[in-house]
Design a binder for these strands. Sequence first.
DNA 1: CCTACCGATCGGTAGG
DNA 2: CCTACCGATCGGTAGG
Lengths: 192, 192
Amino acid sequence: MTAQPQDVRQQILHEATRLFVDRGYHGLSMREIAEAVGVSKAGLYYHFKDKEDLFLAILTNNLERLEQTIQQARQAAAVRGQVELFVTEIFQWAPEQRAIIRLASQEMDHLSQHSVTEFTRLYHAKFISQIQAMLAAGIEHGELRAMDPVVATWLLLGMMYPYLYSSHAGEMNTSTEAVQLMLSIFFDGAAT
Amino acid sequence: MTAQPQDVRQQILHEATRLFVDRGYHGLSMREIAEAVGVSKAGLYYHFKDKEDLFLAILTNNLERLEQTIQQARQAAAVRGQVELFVTEIFQWAPEQRAIIRLASQEMDHLSQHSVTEFTRLYHAKFISQIQAMLAAGIEHGELRAMDPVVATWLLLGMMYPYLYSSHAGEMNTSTEAVQLMLSIFFDGAAT
DNA sequence: CCTACCGATCGGTAGG
DNA sequence: CCTACCGATCGGTAGG
């Protein structure tokens, strides 16, 4: 049985995701990706124009999954239910999938000017502005206090950040308790 | 007037800090640091054993400043005042100084096993466990609800994370309003 | 601290 | 002409 082209491309994306998450953009060579997949380095360049193209394909794949997750979450009635659905779903992703969310913002500066501009635009349209809209609607409906939805979005996403390191996956629990504490602090606060 | 050795070492630390923050550990070469400082590449190796030694010197410098900031903040009476002092002070640091806090956790995996173990130990002793103790005391005194202080610490630090990117410094305000919203969400919640 | 280099490895590409 | 690669090597640069 011969391996089909799509299998190889998917296999490259799968292995490279894991490796980029662990080592960062510049910490990983095309050579190492090729060895991990079991193809030649030239084989990678058949499927992807260059290293940046491969990296962006990983980010874009993740961004589309992220968008779908937000769309599903927004079907909940109240904003608290929407955020809870969103966070719960993200925390159920495999650690290396979750970590791509961090990787995107973390390694953005290491790409070419054009890629940064283009991806940042997509990233805001499909992800950041969706969260902002969720929170803004909550403010408008009186479910949340009057506040800057842009700042509130960064604070909410920031709370998820420590859980977006796959190397921390062992020492931190992303169990229901951690998610619930995050939600109860964001909505109700830590004070008595 | 000849440049003194200590000036050069300080100049290297200053320039390298800015460059590491912008480009990450593997995104920056010793050659580039040397050019930015105006010394030869070999000159860097006079002051620092290797690239990792230079990088760790930057992190360690920052860690000591961070410890002092926490010590000062803990002089406030209530835990809310302590956290407010701490966050306010950090947000007054120069963007590239603030960003080292992120750099430490972000690039930790790219160092040698021994360095990671040693620095992680220091990082927890001087920083993470201090914040944990602050929050644990707040829980014990009834100022904060009963909760896991370890998770609470990561959530608090996470809220600061989006403001630890020096490249975001332009698009985000670290003004009093942002700090106040962060504190009011952490202590009182975003809900009405 | 410099000039002059090294073994190896980098991202990327040639012809077949 | 196509696809899915390979072995070998390019010009430059990495840390030391």
